[in-house]
Write a protein that binds this DNA or RNA. Structure first.
Lengths: 169, 169
DNA sequence: GTGCGCATGTAAGAGGTTACATGATTAA
DNA sequence: TTAATCATGTAACCTCTTACATGCGCAC
């Protein structure tokens, strides 16, 4: 998904340090992406080299200076161009689904265990998403949470149908 | 998701060549993974080295011999071990969702365009999934298709809600 | 004679994760 | 004093994608 545009998009809102970006992503986009420092810092350096972002060193009392990045004109137009393009469709790429498909090699009880396990996890995720919905940073985060919520609910229903079907067999 | 177990799982059903695996994946697991030759062949070599699969060269008339891989005892037990473990939860990692989140930087019309675009794509996917459901190779594929169908429907509903909300604003 | 299906592979590179390395401040 | 938060980075590694390279047989 290229973290390039994630960074550009967040910097379009306000200038930030790499550290700020990481925190913001974790707080508001945890369901969408992870963005480790090993991705973020090199990406910022590259964007800077290419002139899509600028850096300003801000001195601090007692601490080494921090690097605040801000998006440039050129970065802005690149971002706009990307936003206007339709998103590439991505697979459902779920390890869980692969296990379900490969379930022919499993005992019925093992399959039921797999499903029950997944049901619990999905329930927990659902709960945390509902909590996240309580205090949001911005309306866009609400949309993302709603999306995740819809997908999660759909998965729950499917799991329950599967359990009934497998249990009956 | 490691294609290692995908290969092991398919070979557990019946011996296959790398080419067969590719075709089978495309036909039955297209929504879950892609598996290019660049992944498949090296993975098969590695599995062979480690003794999880065996190879048999089958001569053909007029053509060079093909390599038919079959799973070994050791491969079987590795597969079973993996199947028994709960699947790791994966993110929703959708480029589309990121665009939605970054929509603050967009004009209202651009956002509506993004949504409409996505709606069409999802509709098309839904249609092809329904067709896929008509002629299935095995019941497991049916489960996977059902899953994809559920998730797609959830996405459709969400898109429509979003469109109504954004349109009204 | 052109293109598709069968069949196997490699190489370069993109993109990402994990763990390591460093070091100051502040609150419990 | 111990842990968390602030803050920046690198190096090794893994996985996967794309594109290339090869070559036969068969049907249209």
């Amino acid at each position: 998904m290229s973290h390039r545009y994630l960074i550009l998009g967040l910097l379009a809102e306000r200038p930030m340090t790499g550290y700020d970006i990481k925190k913001h992503v974790k707080a508001a986009l945890g369901t969408v992406t992870n963005a480790s420092y090993g991705t973020l810092y090199p990406a910022l350096h590259k964007l800077q080299q290419e002139g899509a972002v600028e850096v300003e060193e801000v001195p601090q009392k007692g601490r080494p200076a921090k690097k605040v990045y801000r998006i440039t004109e050129s970065g802005q137009s690149e971002l706009q161009g990307w936003l206007r393009q339709p998103a590439t469709t991505d697979q459902i790429r779920r390890e869980f689904l692969l296990k379900v498909y490969l379930a022919k090699g499993m005992e019925k009880q093992d399959l039921l265990l797999l499903l029950a396990n997944r049901r619990c996890e999905t329930e927990a995720l659902l709960k945390s998403l509902r909590e996240e919905k309580q205090d949001l940073h911005d309306p866009q985060q609400g949309w993302v949470v709603d999306y995740a919520l819809s997908v999660c609910k759909a998965e729950m229903d499917w799991i329950k149908r599967m359990e009934a079907q497998v249990g009956a067999a």
